[in-house]
Design a protein around this nucleic acid. Sequence first.
DNA 1: TTTTATTGTCTGATAAATAGACAATAAAAA
DNA 2: TTTTTATTGTCTATTTATCAGACAATAAAA
Lengths: 242, 242
Amino acid sequence: MKLFDEQAFIHQLSIDCVIFGYKDLELKVLASQINMSRSFWTLPGGFIKHEEGIDGAAKRILEERTGLKDIYLEQYRVFGEPDRVNREVFEELAEVRDEWVAKGILDDANIGWLGKRFVSIGYYALVDINKVSPQKTELDDSVDWYNVKELPTLIMDHNEMVGYALEALRQNLDQKLIGFNLLPETFTMREVQELYEAVYDRPFARNNFQKKILDLNVLERLEKKFTGAQNKAPYLYRFRRE
Amino acid sequence: MKLFDEQAFIHQLSIDCVIFGYKDLELKVLASQINMSRSFWTLPGGFIKHEEGIDGAAKRILEERTGLKDIYLEQYRVFGEPDRVNREVFEELAEVRDEWVAKGILDDANIGWLGKRFVSIGYYALVDINKVSPQKTELDDSVDWYNVKELPTLIMDHNEMVGYALEALRQNLDQKLIGFNLLPETFTMREVQELYEAVYDRPFARNNFQKKILDLNVLERLEKKFTGAQNKAPYLYRFRRE
DNA sequence: TTTTATTGTCTGATAAATAGACAATAAAAA
DNA sequence: TTTTTATTGTCTATTTATCAGACAATAAAA
C-alpha cells in the first residue's frame, strides 16, 4: 500500500482522531511530531479508501497508530472551512518529495492532491493508555502523549479539534458510561473519581460520587486491593458489559 | 451555474438537510419528490463548492429550498457507509440524461461522478414554517412538508438520517433553547408546550412546564392575546436574544 | 347573572442532589 | 500490644429540584 496513493483514497476528505488516554491524574491526547526542515505536531489522521466506510477508516487509522483493535470510537464533528488547507506540511513535503521517493519513503511522486482544501471528519477515541504502544509511521519523528491542558501548537485547526472533542467527551461521559474505556480492566472507586476530575477539570465530593457511580449498576465489586498503605483497603471494580 | 457541474464541487462528498417545521401540532420535515420514470422522495441536499465551507454550503442549499436566510442550522452526523451509493436516482438519471441535456435541464452530460460512493454530512435546520415557501428546483416534482411520524419512504438512508436528526434535536432542544426557531415571532405558552409535545412525542404537565420555561429567563411577556374563545386570554411571549 | 373553558400561579408531596458525620479498616508508630 | 494516622464505605440530615393537586382569575357564551 502506497502511503499517499492518489487513486486509493477519496479526495479532499480526511479523518483526524483525538485519542484520549488517562494516566497520572491527567487526561492525555496522542500527537505525533513530524520532522522535515521544520517540525510539526499533528493529530493522527488519514484518508478514506474507496471500499471502506468512514468508521472503518477511523478504526484502521487508530489501529495503525496504537496497535489496538476494538477501540471505543465516536465521530463528534466535521471541520470544513473553505480555506482549510494543510499548507504548512504540504509545502515542506513538496520540497522533500524527490528525496523521499528515492529513499523509498514515498512510493508515488503525485502528492499534488494533498495540497487541496480538505474537509475533515473528527473522531475521538478512548483507550487504556497502558495497552497502547504508539506506532510511528514513516513520516513520524515521535508519537507521544500530551496533557490535554498543555498541548503543543498543532498544525491547522487541530488544537480547535481537540477542544471540540473534549466538549463532546464531557457531554457523553456521564450519559453513555464510556469513561471506563480509559481505565484498566480493574480499578478502585478513587481512580474513577480522579478520572472524572481530570475530564471535567473540577473536584467531586467523594461520598456522593461513589453513590452516583454505584447507582449506575454497571460495576461489579471484586476483592479488595491491598496496596500497603496505612488505611482501609479499597475494593476493586470491573465494568460489567451486558 | 450548471446543476451538476463536475468541476465545481468536491467529489464524493454531499450535504443532506433535515428541515424541521412545526404546524398543526405536528413536527414536520421538508421532502421533495423527483419524478423520472419512477418517483422518489428525497431530503433536500447538494454538494460543496470548492470555495465555500460546509456550513456555507448547507446555508446555500437551504436558501435554495426555502427562500430563507439566517436559518438555524446544525450539523449532527456524517453518513459514510462504504456502499453508500445513490443507485436508484443515478440509474434513472443516466437514462434521461440525453433528453434532459436537450431540454436544457442538464447543462452537462458528465454525470458519471454522481454514481460514485458518497459521504454525506447531515445537517438539521429549524424554520418558522409560515415564512417558508418551498422552492422547487428543476429536478423536483414537488416539495412538501411531511409529518415526521408519517414520512414516505425516502431514497438511500434518508429515513435513517431523519431519525438521527430527530434524536439530535431532542438532545439539544432543552439545553440550547433552540425550539423557538420553530415558532413565529410571538406565541403563547400553550403553543410552546404543544411544540415540545410534538418533538418529544409525549405530554407535559401544564403547570410545571410553564414554570420551567419561564425560569429559563429567555422570554419576554407581551400583551394578552384575545382570541374570542370563552376563556381567560393568554399572554403572548417573544424570545429574547441577547 | 350564571356557566364554561382555559389560564396563571400557588402549595404540598415526592424525589434527587448536596453536605456533614462517623465507624471500619490497614499499616505504621508508640 | 496498643495507639495513631490516613483513607474508605456508608449513613443521615439538609437543601434543592421535580412532580402533582388545587384554585382563583378571566373572557365569552348561555
